[in-house]
């Protein structure tokens, strides 16, 4: 262990911008985004893939960035919560819905919900309340009791349809 670790160049397109950094093979994608690229919107709540706070979209699909090594997604397109805004920087439909519905309190788990719901609505643009509750059932929140997050999913679907 006295020898320095072997390093690898990892290049990604993050929120539409090409980014790269040189990291050890064991660097988690979550740490890569947060500490190497300094995109700290993605949060780490458990480091074992259960809480969902670290969820990002890799090529459009939600994944737990704490369970993935950065080197394994070299070349991918990644969307984080920072990339879920509108092109003009205003709140995106999911973010706006969370604000309107008081879907967040401390805001620590919120980035994982925003990315998860963004991907969900792409495939299920008009969910029912029950489906909305199921859609977020893989993410933990300790503050809200989820009721206003369910409402946020439904409102986000409306906003998405309005803005389409």
């Amino acid at each position: 262990m006295s020898a320095a670790e072997e390093l690898y160049e990892v290049s990604l397109v993050v929120n539409g911008v090409p980014r790269s950094a040189t990291v050890p093979a064991r660097r988690l994608l979550s740490d890569f985004l947060r500490h190497d690229l300094e995109l700290t919107g993605t949060h780490v709540g458990c480091e074992h893939g259960v809480c969902g706070a670290c969820t990002v979209l890799v090529d459009g699909r939600p994944i737990r960035s704490c369970l993935q090594f950065a080197v394994t997604v070299d070349g991918a397109e990644v969307t984080t919560v920072e990339g879920c805004t509108r092109p003009d920087g205003e709140l995106g439909h999911v973010q706006q819905a969370f604000r309107e519905c008081h879907g967040l309190q401390c805001g620590f788990c919120t980035p994982g919900f925003v990315t998860t719901i963004t991907a969900y609505l792409e495939e299920n643009p008009a969910p029912t309340a029950d489906q909305a509750r199921e859609a977020i059932a893989g993410n933990l929140c300790r503050c809200t009791g989820y009721q206003n997050i369910v409402a946020s999913v439904l409102r986000a679907a409306e906003l998405r349809a309005e803005r389409a």
């Binding site: 995109l39 700290t40 919107g41 919560v81 920072e82 709140l91 969370f98 967040l104 805001g107």
Partner: peptide, 10 residues
Amino acid sequence: EDPRLLTGQG
């Protein structure tokens, strides 16, 4: 406080 927290600027 929400716009910051919702856009990853917290």
